[in-house]
Amino acid sequence: MDQLTPVEELSLVVARSAGAMMAPGTVEATLRLLVEVVLETVPGADACAVTVLDAVGRGSTSVASDELAARADELQYDAGEGPCLDAVARRGRTLVDDARTDVRWPRWAVGVDALGLRSVLSSPLVAGDAVLGAVKVYSRAPHAFDARSERLLALYAAQAAVLQAALRAAERGRHLSAELRGALRSRDVVNTARGVLVERERVDERTALAVLAAQAEESGRPLHVVARAVVDAAARRRP
């Protein structure tokens, strides 16, 4: 079999990883591989980073190739402007040929020039209708990125979007499972407390549940908390 190119190797890793319930560490490791491949294959790239959005749309750097990329990202978050945030907002690639002459984000441009960076190319992470973040490359040279750079970065952004979408789906599944377990535990303790009242007060199950609900409303406590108190009290009275 012919040796795989870096792009093919990365695509294979992502395809295998995204098919499983992914832990955050797995995603981070694969994103680090993506960043390494970006630096190896995108001409002119001196640094690379991946931004992800949280549930309310705030960006943070998930993986950065080095401290330079991390600091360049922080400049955008602090200023509230920059090519990465623009790519996210427009759902399209954003190119800065020379930060010294680009007038779109003046606060960001001052900071990034101080870092010695001149060119930036950002591509959004798009999965379905959702924008999950962006991947971007930085260069110390002006006019460092061309049409080939844009095509390659778009490919890598697609891979990163698959990873982030898989991670979020896994996290939602874990969250729902935890909620379900909690609901089942609450139901069990309420049913047990109802049985205690049926036996102790000689009432039917509907009346017992009404008694628990009344106690919960009167005390301002959740129903399962009141039920747990009834069950614990009954346990203490047992010889």
Score class of each variant (00 low, 15 high):
residue 45 A to N: 11
residue 221 R to P: 04
residue 158 A to N: 06
residue 47 A to F: 12
residue 166 A to N: 00
residue 117 L to I: 13
residue 109 A to H: 07
residue 32 R to K: 08
residue 163 L to W: 03
residue 223 L to M: 07
residue 207 T to M: 08
residue 133 G to N: 06
residue 148 R to K: 03
residue 236 R to M: 12
residue 179 E to Y: 04
residue 45 A to F: 11
residue 3 Q to A: 15
residue 74 E to R: 15
residue 117 L to Q: 06
residue 138 Y to G: 06
residue 194 R to K: 09
residue 224 H to C: 06
residue 90 R to F: 01
residue 208 A to K: 04
residue 163 L to V: 03
residue 71 R to F: 02
residue 200 R to T: 06
residue 37 V to A: 10
residue 122 S to A: 14
residue 114 A to T: 11
residue 66 D to I: 03
residue 56 V to M: 09
residue 3 Q to K: 15
residue 194 R to V: 12
residue 117 L to S: 04
residue 133 G to W: 02
residue 153 L to V: 01
residue 31 L to G: 03
residue 132 L to F: 00
residue 190 V to H: 08
residue 75 L to G: 08
residue 85 L to F: 05
residue 162 V to C: 04
residue 167 L to K: 02
residue 113 D to V: 15
residue 65 S to M: 07
residue 164 Q to K: 05
residue 88 V to A: 00
residue 126 V to F: 06
residue 190 V to Q: 07
residue 45 A to Y: 11
residue 26 T to A: 11
residue 29 A to K: 05
residue 62 S to D: 01
residue 118 R to C: 04
residue 17 S to G: 03
residue 3 Q to I: 15
residue 64 A to K: 11
residue 212 L to M: 07
residue 94 T to N: 02
residue 71 R to T: 08
residue 225 V to E: 15
residue 52 V to G: 06
residue 47 A to I: 02
residue 63 V to S: 02
residue 161 A to T: 02
residue 88 V to Y: 00
residue 67 E to I: 03
residue 35 V to N: 07
residue 189 V to Y: 09
residue 136 K to Y: 14
residue 10 L to G: 05
residue 143 H to Q: 03
residue 76 Q to P: 08
